[in-house]
Design a protein around this nucleic acid. Structure first.
Lengths: 181, 181
DNA sequence: ACAGCCATGTAACTCGTTACATGATTAC
DNA sequence: GTAATCATGTAACGAGTTACATGGCTGT
Protein backbone atom coordinates (compact mmCIF):
# COMPACT_ATOMS: atom_id res chain seq x y z
CA UNK A 1 0.00 0.00 0.00
CA UNK A 2 2.74 2.39 -0.94
CA UNK A 3 1.54 5.84 -1.91
CA UNK A 4 3.09 8.88 -3.53
CA UNK A 5 4.40 7.17 -6.59
CA UNK A 6 6.76 8.94 -8.95
CA UNK A 7 4.98 11.03 -11.56
CA UNK A 8 5.94 8.63 -14.34
CA UNK A 9 3.91 5.91 -12.63
CA UNK A 10 0.88 8.16 -12.61
CA UNK A 11 1.54 8.98 -16.23
CA UNK A 12 1.43 5.30 -17.20
CA UNK A 13 -1.51 4.63 -14.93
CA UNK A 14 -3.15 7.58 -16.62
CA UNK A 15 -2.76 6.01 -20.04
CA UNK A 16 -4.92 3.19 -18.74
CA UNK A 17 -7.56 5.64 -17.55
CA UNK A 18 -8.82 6.27 -21.08
CA UNK A 19 -10.76 3.04 -20.96
CA UNK A 20 -8.68 0.50 -22.80
CA UNK A 21 -6.59 -2.34 -21.46
CA UNK A 22 -3.06 -2.36 -22.76
CA UNK A 23 0.02 -4.54 -22.74
CA UNK A 24 3.30 -3.08 -21.50
CA UNK A 25 4.38 -2.93 -25.09
CA UNK A 26 1.34 -0.94 -26.10
CA UNK A 27 1.79 1.27 -23.07
CA UNK A 28 5.20 2.16 -24.40
CA UNK A 29 3.74 2.97 -27.80
CA UNK A 30 1.10 5.22 -26.31
CA UNK A 31 3.71 6.89 -24.15
CA UNK A 32 5.79 7.63 -27.23
CA UNK A 33 2.78 9.06 -28.99
CA UNK A 34 1.44 11.21 -26.17
CA UNK A 35 3.51 11.57 -22.98
CA UNK A 36 6.60 12.32 -25.00
CA UNK A 37 5.38 15.81 -25.78
CA UNK A 38 5.27 17.00 -22.19
CA UNK A 39 6.93 14.26 -20.21
CA UNK A 40 9.78 11.79 -20.56
CA UNK A 41 9.07 8.79 -22.72
CA UNK A 42 10.20 5.96 -20.44
CA UNK A 43 12.39 3.16 -21.76
CA UNK A 44 10.76 -0.17 -22.57
CA UNK A 45 12.32 -1.89 -19.60
CA UNK A 46 11.17 0.93 -17.39
CA UNK A 47 7.60 0.48 -18.55
CA UNK A 48 7.73 -3.22 -17.71
CA UNK A 49 9.00 -2.47 -14.25
CA UNK A 50 6.41 0.22 -13.63
CA UNK A 51 3.59 -1.96 -14.90
CA UNK A 52 4.68 -4.72 -12.53
CA UNK A 53 4.81 -2.28 -9.65
CA UNK A 54 1.37 -0.84 -10.38
CA UNK A 55 0.03 -4.39 -10.41
CA UNK A 56 1.70 -5.12 -7.07
CA UNK A 57 0.06 -2.03 -5.60
CA UNK A 58 -3.30 -3.17 -6.89
CA UNK A 59 -3.73 -0.09 -9.06
CA UNK A 60 -3.90 -2.16 -12.20
CA UNK A 61 -4.98 -5.75 -12.80
CA UNK A 62 -2.99 -8.04 -15.05
CA UNK A 63 -4.63 -10.64 -17.23
CA UNK A 64 -2.66 -13.28 -19.07
CA UNK A 65 -4.09 -14.47 -22.34
CA UNK A 66 -2.74 -17.17 -24.61
CA UNK A 67 -2.32 -15.94 -28.15
CA UNK A 68 -1.19 -19.01 -30.09
CA UNK A 69 2.12 -20.09 -28.61
CA UNK A 70 2.78 -16.99 -26.54
CA UNK A 71 1.38 -15.49 -23.42
CA UNK A 72 0.37 -11.86 -23.58
CA UNK A 73 -0.11 -9.89 -20.37
CA UNK A 74 -2.69 -7.15 -20.48
CA UNK A 75 -3.19 -4.46 -17.86
CA UNK A 76 -6.43 -2.74 -16.90
CA UNK A 77 -6.89 0.03 -14.34
CA UNK A 78 -8.73 -0.98 -11.17
CA UNK A 79 -11.21 1.02 -9.13
CA UNK A 80 -8.45 1.70 -6.65
CA UNK A 81 -6.15 2.74 -9.44
CA UNK A 82 -8.72 5.16 -10.71
CA UNK A 83 -9.31 6.77 -7.36
CA UNK A 84 -5.60 6.93 -6.53
CA UNK A 85 -4.97 8.61 -9.85
CA UNK A 86 -7.82 11.06 -9.35
CA UNK A 87 -6.53 11.94 -5.88
CA UNK A 88 -3.12 12.73 -7.31
CA UNK A 89 -4.47 14.85 -10.16
CA UNK A 90 -6.74 16.68 -7.75
CA UNK A 91 -4.60 17.17 -4.67
CA UNK A 92 -0.89 17.00 -5.43
CA UNK A 93 0.86 20.30 -4.88
CA UNK A 94 1.79 22.00 -8.14
CA UNK A 95 5.35 21.43 -8.97
CA UNK A 96 7.09 23.61 -11.41
CA UNK A 97 7.98 22.09 -14.79
CA UNK A 98 11.57 21.04 -15.21
CA UNK A 99 13.23 21.67 -18.52
CA UNK A 100 16.33 19.87 -19.71
CA UNK A 101 17.04 22.12 -22.61
CA UNK A 102 20.44 21.23 -24.02
CA UNK A 103 20.12 23.75 -26.83
CA UNK A 104 19.49 26.58 -24.37
CA UNK A 105 22.44 25.36 -22.31
CA UNK A 106 24.70 25.51 -25.33
CA UNK A 107 23.41 28.94 -26.24
CA UNK A 108 24.11 30.01 -22.67
CA UNK A 109 27.70 28.88 -23.16
CA UNK A 110 27.97 30.54 -26.54
CA UNK A 111 30.90 32.69 -25.47
CA UNK A 112 33.26 29.70 -25.61
CA UNK A 113 32.79 29.14 -29.36
CA UNK A 114 32.43 31.21 -32.50
CA UNK A 115 28.95 32.52 -33.18
CA UNK A 116 28.66 30.56 -36.41
CA UNK A 117 28.76 27.32 -34.40
CA UNK A 118 26.01 28.44 -32.09
CA UNK A 119 24.11 29.53 -35.14
CA UNK A 120 24.34 26.05 -36.62
CA UNK A 121 23.14 24.47 -33.37
CA UNK A 122 20.07 26.67 -33.63
CA UNK A 123 19.54 25.65 -37.24
CA UNK A 124 19.71 21.98 -36.30
CA UNK A 125 17.27 22.62 -33.52
CA UNK A 126 14.85 24.34 -35.87
CA UNK A 127 14.96 21.32 -38.15
CA UNK A 128 14.28 18.97 -35.23
CA UNK A 129 11.40 21.19 -34.15
CA UNK A 130 9.86 20.88 -37.58
CA UNK A 131 9.67 17.10 -37.17
CA UNK A 132 8.27 17.21 -33.69
CA UNK A 133 5.71 19.75 -34.69
CA UNK A 134 4.54 17.54 -37.55
CA UNK A 135 4.27 14.54 -35.21
CA UNK A 136 2.28 16.46 -32.66
CA UNK A 137 0.06 18.00 -35.27
CA UNK A 138 -0.82 14.50 -36.48
CA UNK A 139 -1.66 13.47 -32.93
CA UNK A 140 -3.75 16.56 -32.40
CA UNK A 141 -5.68 15.95 -35.62
CA UNK A 142 -6.41 12.38 -34.61
CA UNK A 143 -8.01 13.60 -31.39
CA UNK A 144 -10.48 15.81 -33.23
CA UNK A 145 -13.18 17.18 -30.95
CA UNK A 146 -14.14 13.84 -29.44
CA UNK A 147 -15.30 14.69 -25.91
CA UNK A 148 -13.54 11.59 -24.56
CA UNK A 149 -10.21 13.15 -25.48
CA UNK A 150 -10.95 16.75 -24.65
CA UNK A 151 -8.34 16.90 -21.89
CA UNK A 152 -5.75 15.28 -24.11
CA UNK A 153 -6.59 17.73 -26.88
CA UNK A 154 -6.07 20.67 -24.54
CA UNK A 155 -2.56 19.46 -23.78
CA UNK A 156 -1.84 18.83 -27.45
CA UNK A 157 -2.84 22.42 -28.21
CA UNK A 158 -0.59 23.59 -25.40
CA UNK A 159 2.24 21.58 -26.94
CA UNK A 160 1.65 23.01 -30.39
CA UNK A 161 1.84 26.48 -28.91
CA UNK A 162 5.02 25.56 -27.10
CA UNK A 163 6.73 24.33 -30.24
CA UNK A 164 5.64 27.44 -32.10
CA UNK A 165 7.13 29.52 -29.31
CA UNK A 166 10.37 27.54 -29.48
CA UNK A 167 10.57 28.21 -33.20
CA UNK A 168 10.18 31.92 -32.73
CA UNK A 169 12.64 32.02 -29.82
CA UNK A 170 15.24 30.07 -31.79
CA UNK A 171 14.79 32.35 -34.79
CA UNK A 172 15.06 35.41 -32.62
CA UNK A 173 18.22 34.15 -30.93
CA UNK A 174 19.65 33.37 -34.36
CA UNK A 175 18.93 36.86 -35.58
CA UNK A 176 20.65 38.48 -32.61
CA UNK A 177 23.66 36.32 -33.44
CA UNK A 178 23.60 37.59 -37.00
CA UNK A 179 23.29 41.18 -35.81
CA UNK A 180 26.38 40.77 -33.67
CA UNK A 181 28.56 40.41 -36.76
CA UNK B 1 40.54 10.78 -20.02
CA UNK B 2 36.88 9.99 -19.78
CA UNK B 3 34.84 11.66 -22.49
CA UNK B 4 31.19 12.38 -23.15
CA UNK B 5 30.23 13.60 -19.75
CA UNK B 6 26.58 14.04 -18.82
CA UNK B 7 25.19 17.44 -19.76
CA UNK B 8 24.97 18.50 -16.13
CA UNK B 9 28.76 18.23 -15.87
CA UNK B 10 29.15 20.52 -18.84
CA UNK B 11 26.65 22.87 -17.28
CA UNK B 12 28.73 23.14 -14.11
CA UNK B 13 31.96 23.34 -16.04
CA UNK B 14 30.30 26.07 -18.05
CA UNK B 15 29.61 28.12 -14.93
CA UNK B 16 33.37 28.21 -14.44
CA UNK B 17 33.90 29.42 -18.02
CA UNK B 18 32.74 32.93 -17.18
CA UNK B 19 36.11 33.68 -15.67
CA UNK B 20 35.71 33.30 -11.95
CA UNK B 21 36.86 30.54 -9.64
CA UNK B 22 34.13 29.17 -7.46
CA UNK B 23 33.68 26.82 -4.54
CA UNK B 24 31.24 23.94 -4.87
CA UNK B 25 28.92 25.87 -2.64
CA UNK B 26 29.04 28.92 -4.89
CA UNK B 27 28.63 26.69 -7.92
CA UNK B 28 25.36 25.52 -6.42
CA UNK B 29 24.26 29.11 -5.87
CA UNK B 30 25.06 30.07 -9.44
CA UNK B 31 23.27 27.00 -10.70
CA UNK B 32 20.17 27.98 -8.74
CA UNK B 33 20.33 31.48 -10.17
CA UNK B 34 20.94 30.56 -13.80
CA UNK B 35 20.82 26.90 -14.83
CA UNK B 36 17.56 26.45 -13.00
CA UNK B 37 15.67 28.31 -15.70
CA UNK B 38 16.49 25.91 -18.50
CA UNK B 39 18.13 22.97 -16.80
CA UNK B 40 17.83 21.00 -13.59
CA UNK B 41 19.33 22.65 -10.53
CA UNK B 42 21.47 19.82 -9.15
CA UNK B 43 21.39 18.98 -5.45
CA UNK B 44 24.24 20.19 -3.28
CA UNK B 45 25.67 16.72 -2.90
CA UNK B 46 25.48 16.25 -6.63
CA UNK B 47 27.50 19.40 -7.20
CA UNK B 48 30.22 18.19 -4.84
CA UNK B 49 30.43 14.90 -6.64
CA UNK B 50 30.53 16.51 -10.08
CA UNK B 51 33.16 19.03 -9.01
CA UNK B 52 35.33 16.18 -7.73
CA UNK B 53 34.87 14.32 -10.99
CA UNK B 54 35.74 17.32 -13.13
CA UNK B 55 38.90 17.75 -11.07
CA UNK B 56 39.77 14.09 -11.53
CA UNK B 57 39.39 14.51 -15.28
CA UNK B 58 41.67 17.53 -15.20
CA UNK B 59 38.96 19.84 -16.55
CA UNK B 60 39.08 21.99 -13.46
CA UNK B 61 41.85 22.63 -10.95
CA UNK B 62 41.15 22.66 -7.22
CA UNK B 63 42.96 25.01 -4.86
CA UNK B 64 42.67 24.68 -1.11
CA UNK B 65 42.94 27.87 0.86
CA UNK B 66 42.90 28.28 4.60
CA UNK B 67 40.31 30.75 5.76
CA UNK B 68 40.80 31.00 9.49
CA UNK B 69 40.11 27.58 10.94
CA UNK B 70 38.53 26.05 7.86
CA UNK B 71 39.76 24.89 4.50
CA UNK B 72 37.91 26.19 1.45
CA UNK B 73 38.29 24.41 -1.88
CA UNK B 74 38.04 26.60 -4.94
CA UNK B 75 37.71 25.35 -8.52
CA UNK B 76 38.98 27.03 -11.66
CA UNK B 77 38.56 25.84 -15.23
CA UNK B 78 41.72 24.57 -16.93
CA UNK B 79 42.81 24.97 -20.53
CA UNK B 80 41.74 21.42 -21.15
CA UNK B 81 38.44 22.10 -19.49
CA UNK B 82 37.87 25.07 -21.71
CA UNK B 83 38.62 23.21 -24.91
CA UNK B 84 36.58 20.17 -23.87
CA UNK B 85 33.65 22.43 -23.11
CA UNK B 86 34.02 24.27 -26.41
CA UNK B 87 34.12 20.98 -28.31
CA UNK B 88 30.88 19.89 -26.69
CA UNK B 89 29.09 23.17 -27.34
CA UNK B 90 30.31 23.13 -30.93
CA UNK B 91 29.99 19.53 -31.99
CA UNK B 92 27.49 17.62 -29.88
CA UNK B 93 24.46 16.50 -31.86
CA UNK B 94 21.38 18.52 -31.00
CA UNK B 95 19.19 16.71 -28.65
CA UNK B 96 15.64 17.67 -28.21
CA UNK B 97 14.64 19.34 -24.95
CA UNK B 98 12.93 17.14 -22.42
CA UNK B 99 10.07 18.56 -20.46
CA UNK B 100 8.85 17.16 -17.19
CA UNK B 101 5.66 19.14 -17.02
CA UNK B 102 3.57 17.82 -14.17
CA UNK B 103 0.89 20.45 -14.70
CA UNK B 104 0.47 19.44 -18.34
CA UNK B 105 0.34 15.81 -17.26
CA UNK B 106 -2.43 16.57 -14.82
CA UNK B 107 -4.30 18.58 -17.42
CA UNK B 108 -3.91 15.60 -19.77
CA UNK B 109 -5.59 13.45 -17.14
CA UNK B 110 -8.30 16.00 -16.49
CA UNK B 111 -11.07 13.57 -17.39
CA UNK B 112 -10.61 11.70 -14.09
CA UNK B 113 -11.55 14.70 -11.93
CA UNK B 114 -14.06 17.55 -11.97
CA UNK B 115 -13.07 20.53 -14.07
CA UNK B 116 -12.97 22.84 -11.07
CA UNK B 117 -10.04 20.84 -9.68
CA UNK B 118 -8.09 21.10 -12.90
CA UNK B 119 -8.94 24.76 -12.92
CA UNK B 120 -7.43 25.22 -9.48
CA UNK B 121 -4.25 23.39 -10.51
CA UNK B 122 -3.92 25.91 -13.32
CA UNK B 123 -4.47 28.80 -10.93
CA UNK B 124 -1.75 27.48 -8.62
CA UNK B 125 0.53 27.12 -11.59
CA UNK B 126 -0.12 30.70 -12.68
CA UNK B 127 0.83 31.90 -9.22
CA UNK B 128 4.05 29.87 -9.30
CA UNK B 129 4.83 31.26 -12.74
CA UNK B 130 4.50 34.78 -11.37
CA UNK B 131 7.28 34.09 -8.88
CA UNK B 132 9.57 32.46 -11.38
CA UNK B 133 9.06 35.23 -13.82
CA UNK B 134 10.00 37.83 -11.20
CA UNK B 135 13.15 35.85 -10.31
CA UNK B 136 14.21 35.54 -13.91
CA UNK B 137 13.44 39.16 -14.65
CA UNK B 138 15.78 40.14 -11.82
CA UNK B 139 18.49 37.92 -13.27
CA UNK B 140 17.97 39.37 -16.71
CA UNK B 141 18.20 42.92 -15.43
CA UNK B 142 21.42 42.16 -13.63
CA UNK B 143 22.99 41.00 -16.88
CA UNK B 144 22.28 44.29 -18.63
CA UNK B 145 24.01 44.59 -21.97
CA UNK B 146 27.46 43.65 -20.69
CA UNK B 147 29.12 41.92 -23.67
CA UNK B 148 30.66 39.33 -21.33
CA UNK B 149 27.17 38.03 -20.57
CA UNK B 150 25.62 38.42 -23.98
CA UNK B 151 25.08 34.67 -24.42
CA UNK B 152 23.60 34.37 -20.95
CA UNK B 153 21.32 37.31 -21.68
CA UNK B 154 20.06 35.64 -24.84
CA UNK B 155 19.01 32.59 -22.83
CA UNK B 156 17.42 34.74 -20.16
CA UNK B 157 15.35 36.44 -22.83
CA UNK B 158 14.37 33.05 -24.20
CA UNK B 159 13.30 32.05 -20.71
CA UNK B 160 11.25 35.18 -20.20
CA UNK B 161 9.48 34.44 -23.47
CA UNK B 162 8.88 30.88 -22.37
CA UNK B 163 7.30 31.91 -19.09
CA UNK B 164 5.13 34.44 -20.88
CA UNK B 165 4.03 31.67 -23.23
CA UNK B 166 3.26 29.39 -20.30
CA UNK B 167 1.11 32.08 -18.76
CA UNK B 168 -0.91 32.50 -21.91
CA UNK B 169 -1.23 28.75 -22.45
CA UNK B 170 -2.39 28.21 -18.86
CA UNK B 171 -4.91 31.04 -19.19
CA UNK B 172 -6.15 29.68 -22.47
CA UNK B 173 -6.55 26.17 -21.05
CA UNK B 174 -8.39 27.65 -18.08
CA UNK B 175 -10.78 29.51 -20.34
CA UNK B 176 -11.64 26.39 -22.35
CA UNK B 177 -12.42 24.73 -19.02
CA UNK B 178 -14.76 27.56 -18.13
CA UNK B 179 -16.41 27.39 -21.53
CA UNK B 180 -17.13 23.70 -21.01
CA UNK B 181 -19.52 24.52 -18.19
C1' DA C 1 24.06 32.43 23.47
C1' DC C 2 21.88 31.40 19.37
C1' DA C 3 20.36 31.57 14.61
C1' DG C 4 21.54 31.47 10.10
C1' DC C 5 24.54 31.03 6.55
C1' DC C 6 29.03 29.09 4.65
C1' DA C 7 31.27 24.96 3.65
C1' DT C 8 32.19 19.96 2.93
C1' DG C 9 31.19 15.73 2.44
C1' DT C 10 29.15 10.34 2.95
C1' DA C 11 25.42 6.80 2.65
C1' DA C 12 21.51 4.91 1.00
C1' DC C 13 18.22 4.95 -2.23
C1' DT C 14 15.20 5.72 -6.45
C1' DC C 15 14.63 6.76 -11.16
C1' DG C 16 15.77 5.84 -15.55
C1' DT C 17 19.01 4.19 -19.10
C1' DT C 18 21.56 0.81 -22.15
C1' DA C 19 22.88 -3.72 -23.05
C1' DC C 20 21.67 -8.37 -23.09
C1' DA C 21 18.67 -12.36 -23.92
C1' DT C 22 14.76 -14.82 -25.79
C1' DG C 23 11.20 -16.21 -28.70
C1' DA C 24 6.59 -15.92 -31.35
C1' DT C 25 3.89 -13.74 -35.09
C1' DT C 26 3.29 -11.29 -39.49
C1' DA C 27 4.28 -9.63 -44.01
C1' DC C 28 7.01 -9.96 -48.01
C1' DG D 1 13.21 -18.03 -45.60
C1' DT D 2 13.96 -13.89 -43.59
C1' DA D 3 13.20 -9.36 -41.84
C1' DA D 4 10.31 -6.49 -39.11
C1' DT D 5 7.46 -6.10 -35.46
C1' DC D 6 5.24 -7.90 -31.20
C1' DA D 7 6.19 -9.27 -26.71
C1' DT D 8 8.61 -10.05 -22.24
C1' DG D 9 11.82 -9.63 -19.32
C1' DT D 10 16.87 -9.39 -16.45
C1' DA D 11 21.37 -7.21 -15.30
C1' DA D 12 24.35 -3.64 -14.72
C1' DC D 13 24.98 0.92 -14.43
C1' DG D 14 24.61 5.96 -14.10
C1' DA D 15 22.20 10.14 -12.72
C1' DG D 16 20.17 12.49 -9.23
C1' DT D 17 17.75 12.64 -4.80
C1' DT D 18 17.11 12.88 0.40
C1' DA D 19 18.88 12.08 4.82
C1' DC D 20 22.69 12.23 7.73
C1' DA D 21 26.84 14.23 9.83
C1' DT D 22 30.10 17.80 10.94
C1' DG D 23 31.88 22.19 12.01
C1' DG D 24 33.42 27.19 11.31
C1' DC D 25 32.05 32.05 10.58
C1' DT D 26 28.91 36.14 11.17
C1' DG D 27 25.51 39.03 12.95
C1' DT D 28 22.35 40.07 16.74
Amino acid sequence: MGQQLPATSYALLGLLSFGQSLTAYQLKQWADASLRFFWVAPAMSHVYREAARLAEEGLVAATDARDGGRVVRTYAITERGRSTLAAWVRDAPVDFPVLKHTVALRLFLGHVVDDEHTRSVLDDYLAALEHRLADLRAVRDSLGDDPAFRSAARVADWGLGYYAFEQSAAREAASTLDDAR
